[in-house]
Computed example of a mutant assay.
Amino acid sequence: SYSDDIVQLRWTGESRGRYDWMSSVKVVGDIELPEYRFVKLETKTEVTVWNTGNYSTLVVRFIFARHLTAYLVNTYIPSSLVVVMSWLSFWLDINAVPARITLGVTSLLTLVTQVVQSRSAIPPVGYVNALDIWLFVCLNVVFATLLEYAIAYTISLKTKPNKIGVNPLAGKYFGNFDKKNPEKNDRNAIANSTKTRSPTQAWTNPNIGHANQTIEKPSTRNVSKVDLFSRVIFPTCFASFVIVYWVYYMYDY
């Protein structure tokens, strides 16, 4: 109730006096918070300006740091594993549409659930905190994985089917072709056609009488060049973000 020209407040120890041997703020050492650890406190003196005059004010600032163990176990490590799990689609066949879409959508929904749970576990604030940045980047990485598959699948549709034209009587599957004895070739073809064929041999027409038939090449795993590029660029970018993130936020911890 007195302006600073009448009363000036000071913390103990800032000026010489009979109470300088006492500490300005005494912290009880046996009190601990479940989610925070006490780092330090800062004391200062300010002058507050009001319409009725200037008033001396004492300010104490308590600085706390969160315990990271619970957040690492409940948020950071699970979200990182979900992001890595979404990258498994890069090693799946480009034609495995249900598998790759299900893997990406499941990873995305899991991260959305983690975002909702993390927001309910911390006090509501009007600014973006470190946990929000982490989960936002994880969501974008998983979404980029789905976008990458859409691009890779579109490119694969533009490629021609891998087929080869062969003469079934030319000896590729039925033995040697004898030009001097055509009847022998027919007998060999009929005899060999009754044998058990390999599951990888796909016949478009089993009739022996056609001279030129289109036979599909044995099916192989179709790997897109976009997937090969993503196997390197996605882990590299995410690892770079993780390093920058922890170095920045752990600098003053």
Rank of each mutant, 00 (worst) to 15 (best):
I151S: 08
A121Q: 12
Y153C: 03
N212Y: 11
I164Y: 09
D20P: 02
V49M: 07
L33W: 04
P161M: 10
G29R: 09
M22F: 03
V28K: 08
K217L: 15
A96I: 00
R100C: 15
W91D: 13
N176K: 08
D4Y: 01
F177K: 05
I243R: 01
V247W: 15
C138G: 04
T48Q: 10
T52Y: 00
T45Y: 00
A202E: 14
L41F: 14
N185V: 14
I243P: 01
L72N: 12
R231Q: 15
S118A: 14
K180M: 10
Y253M: 03
S1N: 08
E183H: 03
A202Q: 13
P123L: 12
A65H: 08
P199S: 09
Y2T: 13
K158N: 07
K163R: 05
Y149C: 05
L169D: 00
Y249R: 01
V47N: 04
W21P: 00
I31W: 06
D132N: 09
D252A: 07
V232Y: 15
F143A: 15
T200V: 11
L109E: 09
I155L: 10
P123A: 11
I243G: 07
K184Y: 02
S3Q: 12
L109K: 14
L131F: 06
L33N: 09
S118G: 07
Y36Q: 10
I243L: 11
G126F: 15
S79F: 02
N185D: 05
V84L: 07
V223A: 04
D186E: 04
Y76I: 14
T75G: 10
P168S: 02
T52C: 08
V60R: 11
I77L: 06
S230K: 14
E32G: 08
V83W: 03
L58I: 08
C138Q: 12
W203R: 08
S23Q: 07
N207I: 03
T69A: 13
V105G: 00
M85H: 08
A202T: 12
N54T: 07
V105W: 11
N51R: 15
V116S: 06
Y71D: 06
W134K: 02
L169R: 05
V112R: 13
N74M: 01
W11M: 04
I190N: 06
R100A: 11
I77A: 10
N54E: 12
T45K: 07
Y55R: 13
V49R: 05
R37Y: 14
S156Q: 12
Q201A: 04
K179R: 06
R61I: 12
I122E: 04
A239V: 08
K217R: 12
I133W: 03
V105K: 14
K180R: 04
A121W: 06
N181Q: 03
P34G: 08
L41Q: 10
D132E: 09
Y245K: 00
E42V: 12
G165S: 11
A96M: 01
V73H: 10
S230Q: 12
D93K: 09
F62I: 15
S230T: 14
T220R: 15
W11Q: 05
I151C: 08
N176I: 02
S86C: 07
A150F: 00
A130Q: 12
Y71N: 03
P98I: 01
F238L: 11
